[in-house]
């Protein structure tokens, strides 16, 4: 009986509650395009790519308890014209304990989730930059956009 209790206690001690890490994103991106965005005035099309600031938005990862994590990104909704693509990359590693890797090249975001970056431990202020390609006068006027979803797992 004592043996059973000791062994059971050892098993209980080795068990840890599953971690529930949190991801937060700060900042959006909005651009207004007009005649000033033509490559070379009359007779030319809208410049491409159109790139945001290097620190346009940031990601925070918290409550990781030092564990390894992966951030995935996908496009949840889109009103982008055919031929227009949005891409994202991280421009900084943020700060905090642990580390981060990957995600420094532009990743074209589609409807299927893709890995943006990975690391371990809490990180804050991971810089994000965005890029639009394929915007053209042939798409007319109006408002266009997309919603990106970042997931930590």
């Amino acid at each position: 009986m004592l043996k059973r209790f000791v062994l059971f206690a050892i098993c209980l001690a080795s068990m840890q509650v599953a971690q529930a890490a949190d991801i937060s994103v700060f900042g959006n991106w909005s651009e207004t395009l007009g005649a000033a965005d033509l490559v070379g005035g009359a007779g030319t099309d809208i410049r491409s790519p159109i790139t945001s600031g290097a620190y346009q938005a940031t990601l925070d990862l918290s409550n990781t308890d030092g564990a390894a994590w992966t951030v995935g990104v996908r496009r949840a909704s889109s009103s982008l014209p055919t031929g227009v693509a949005v891409a994202v990359r991280r421009t900084t590693g943020g700060s905090g304990d642990g580390g981060i890797s990957g995600g420094q090249d532009f990743l074209t975001v589609g409807a299927n989730e893709q890995v943006l970056c990975s690391g371990h431990g809490d990180r804050s202020g991971i810089g994000l930059q965005f890029r639009l390609t394929g915007v053209s006068v042939e798409q007319g006027t109006g408002g266009f956009g997309a919603t990106l979803v970042y997931r930590v797992y």
């Binding site: 080795s14 068990m15 840890q16 599953a18 971690q19 529930a20 890490a21 949190d22 991801i23 937060s24 994103v25 900042g27 959006n28 991106w29 909005s30 651009e31 207004t32 395009l33 007009g34 005649a35 033509l38 005035g41 009359a42 007779g43 809208i46 159109i50 938005a57 990601l59 990781t64 308890d65 030092g66 564990a67 390894a68 994590w69 949840a76 949005v86 965005f130 639009l132 915007v135 006068v137 798409q139 007319g140 006027t141 109006g142 408002g143 266009f144 956009g145 997309a146 919603t147 990106l148 979803v149 970042y150 997931r151 930590v152 797992y153």
Partner: peptide
């Protein structure tokens, strides 16, 4: 159970652009 598995969480972000009339 003790492998440190992380439960998923997510955050959303919007990107948009407005194209004005261009006549050059």
């Amino acid at each position: 159970v003790s492998s440190g598995a992380i439960a998923g969480d997510s955050a959303q972000q919007t990107l948009n652009y407005q194209v004005s009339a261009i006549n050059e």
